[in-house]
C-alpha cells in the first residue's frame, strides 16, 4: 500500500527546450506517448500548438521524425506515411498522428473519418485543450458549454455542448478507442502501448489542460486534470471495436463546481449555469455508465476493490476483453 507511485519507461525521447508554455498538458501528452512508443516512431502533426512547440527550423524537440502537415490532413498524411513505410518493407515503425482538438473535432474530421473507415493502421492521438489555443484561444467544437474564449466572450459564453467525438469514432467501429489524461500517466502509457500492439485504426483522446487558455496557474495543470476525471467531466474509458465499453477508473464523483472554480474561463458562470453543467455531466455519465458493466477499478479507494463486490462484473469484463482480442486477431489475420 502506501504512496501511489509511477514507473514510466526511462527513455526520454522528447527533448527539453521546446516552445510549449509552462505547465502545458499537450507537451506532457507527447512526452508520455513517445515514452510508450519508443524511438521507432514517425509523428504527423497538423497545424496545432505542437506545430510551434516542436521548435523553429532547424530545431525539433520530438526526438523522432516529425512530418508537419496542413490543418485538415493529419489522418490522410498519416495514412500516406504508413503506406510509404509499408512500401519500403518497414512494418515495424509506428505512425502517430498527433493533433489538437481543432484539427480533430472540426477541420480534420473528414480525413479522420476516412482513415477510420478504411481502418488505416496507425495511432491517432488528439490532445484536447478545448479550443484553438495556438492561434489565440478561439472556440472549437471541443470547447465545453459555458466556457469563455476570445470568440465566445464572457457576455455570451459558448452555448453549445462539447461535441462527443468518442461516439463518432465508436460509430466507425474501430478496433481500439480510449480516453486518457495527463494526470494518470501510467494509464495513458498502458493504453498507448496497447494501441501499438493492435492492428488497424486506434484513436486516443487525451485531456490536456492549457494554463493560458483556461486561465489557471500552470502548477495546477495536473490537479485540474485529476479533477476533470474525479468530477466525471472526462471519464477514462476504453472501447473495443466500437462496442465493448470498459471504465478505466471509477471517479470519486466530486462536484463539477470544484473543477469549474479552478479555471478563469468559467469565472463568469452563475450558480444556475454551473447547475446546468452539473446536470449535463451527470446525464452524460449515466448514459455512458449504461454502456459498460461496472468494472475493475483503477481507483484511489482500493478498499472498494478488496470488498470484492464487483467480482462478477470483473470477470465479465475480462471475458469481454478476451473476445475483443480474438476479434482483433482475426481482423489482423
Amino acid at each position: 500500500m502506501g504512496q501511489i507511485k509511477y514507473q514510466l519507461p526511462p527513455d526520454e525521447v522528447l527533448a527539453p527546450g521546446h516552445f510549449a508554455c509552462p505547465g502545458c498538458g499537450a507537451t506532457l501528452t507527447m512526452r508520455y506517448a513517445l515514452k510508450a512508443l519508443g524511438r521507432k516512431t514517425v509523428v504527423v502533426i497538423p497545424a496545432c500548438c505542437w506545430s510551434v512547440i516542436d521548435g523553429p527550423v532547424p530545431y525539433s524537440a520530438a526526438g523522432v521524425p516529425v512530418f508537419h502537415t496542413a490543418f485538415e490532413t493529419a489522418a490522410s498524411t498519416a495514412s500516406g506515411v504508413k503506406a510509404g513505410l509499408d512500401a519500403q518493407g518497414d512494418h515495424e515503425t509506428t505512425v502517430l498522428a498527433f493533433a489538437g482538438d481543432g484539427g480533430t473535432f472540426d477541420i480534420g474530421l473528414q480525413a479522420l473519418s476516412g482513415a477510420a473507415e478504411r481502418n488505416e493502421d496507425f495511432i491517432y492521438i488528439c490532445y484536447d485543450n478545448e479550443a484553438y489555443m495556438n492561434t489565440g484561444i478561439q472556440r472549437s467544437s471541443a470547447t465545453p458549454f459555458g466556457a469563455w474564449t476570445t470568440t465566445t466572450p464572457a457576455v455570451s459564453p459558448k452555448a453549445e455542448k462539447k461535441k462527443n467525438i468518442i461516439e463518432i469514432l465508436a460509430a466507425h467501429r474501430i478496433p481500439y478507442l480510449a480516453t486518457a489524461s495527463v494526470a494518470y500517466p501510467d494509464d495513458m502509457i498502458a493504453k498507448i502501448r496497447k494501441a501499438k500492439d493492435i492492428r488497424g485504426f486506434k484513436f486516443i483522446h487525451v485531456f490536456s489542460p492549457c494554463p493560458p487558455g483556461w486561465k489557471f496557474e500552470p502548477e495546477d495543470s495536473i490537479k485540474i486534470s485529476r479533477m476533470a476525471i474525479e468530477s466525471k467531466v472526462f471519464p477514462l474509458i476504453e472501447i473495443i471495436d466500437g462496442i465493448d465499453y470498459a471504465l478505466s477508473k471509477e471517479p470519486d464523483g466530486i462536484p463539477v463546481r470544484d473543477y469549474i472554480k479552478m479555471q478563469g474561463r468559467f469565472r463568469h458562470l452563475n450558480d444556475e449555469q454551473i447547475g446546468i453543467i452539473q446536470a449535463n455531466v451527470t446525464e452524460d455519465w449515466e448514459r455512458l455508465r449504461a454502456k459498460f458493466a461496472p468494472t475493475r477499478k483503477v481507483s484511489r479507494s482500493r478498499r472498494d476493490e478488496s470488498t470484492g463486490e464487483n467480482k462478477s462484473s470483473q470477470t465479465r469484463n475480462v471475458t469481454r476483453t478476451k473476445n475483443a482480442r480474438k476479434r482483433a486477431q482475426k481482423s489482423r489475420g
Binding site: 527533448a15 527546450g17 521546446h18 516552445f19 521548435g55 527550423v57 532547424p58 530545431y59 525539433s60
Partner: peptide
C-alpha cells in the same frame, strides 16, 4: 527540415 534538437534553446 530540422535536424537539430531544441536542447540548444535555453528556455
Amino acid at each position: 527540415f530540422s535536424l537539430e534538437s531544441t536542447r540548444e534553446i535555453p528556455t
